[in-house]
Nucleic acid binder design. Structure first.
Lengths: 107, 107
DNA sequence: GAAACAAGTTTGTATTGCAAACTTGTTTTG
DNA sequence: CAAAACAAGTTTGCAATACAAACTTGTTTC
């Protein structure tokens, strides 16, 4: 009896900021560390610098992360931290995905 | 111990055809029925006609569904069926999502 | 038979995602 | 020590979307 099907309209409500794979990757990394440096984030996601830059800007615009600019000696280092809003959005997104996934082992 | 984090690069490999919410909604509906009429699909997804038309065309181009044009009496009725490839792609997508979701009840 | 309606498709536009080119500063080297 | 190479990011330009408004073709209704 368990109709698995979520209401298809709910799928259209997914947070597009989070849904974009590059940004989901970024948020996923940020969620597991206190602060992450630009170059580390680039290596671990495999994104190009330009791409990473614009996606982090978008995430910052959405209030999902904050940018920390500092100096390591005399070279500039940009790092990111996920915000509370970002964490909340990511969790909400995960919940939405869970809701739309069929229970493991459907025909 | 249990590092939940999937490799972030894997997130970038998500099938973009399926990942788009409108198309995911469409495929989800199609996967649960043998054949679905255009207008029914429109009502259940909430998509506009134009939108639905172009997304189904894209899915057809990808080989994920097939279009069936018929007549109900004398009015034309367009319906869709998911293909084997479509079903495979949807299942693969579900697997990828499961892999990146943290186990229920993380801090 | 003209006017409203139905079922889809095509067209136009604004938004994106992406990488190449640029900027600013630092290190290396001839 | 000047110039060339390099590093860290950002901005710019372009191709690909996603979306809805306008159009097309055919059918009822009045």
């Amino acid at each position: 009896m368990g109709k698995t099907g979520t209401n298809p309209k709910a799928i259209l409500d997914l947070d597009r900021i989070v849904h974009e794979p590059a940004r989901l990757a970024i948020l996923t990394v940020l969620a597991s560390a206190e602060e992450v440096a630009f170059l580390f984030l680039q290596r671990v996601t495999g994104l190009s610098k330009g791409n990473l830059s614009s996606h982090t800007q978008k995430l910052e615009g959405a209030g999902y992360l904050e940018t920390v600019k500092a100096f390591q000696g005399r070279i500039p280092v940009t790092s990111f931290r996920i915000t509370e809003d970002g964490r909340t959005a990511l969790r909400a997104y995960h919940q939405q995905l869970r809701a739309l996934l069929p229970k493991e082992g459907k025909p």
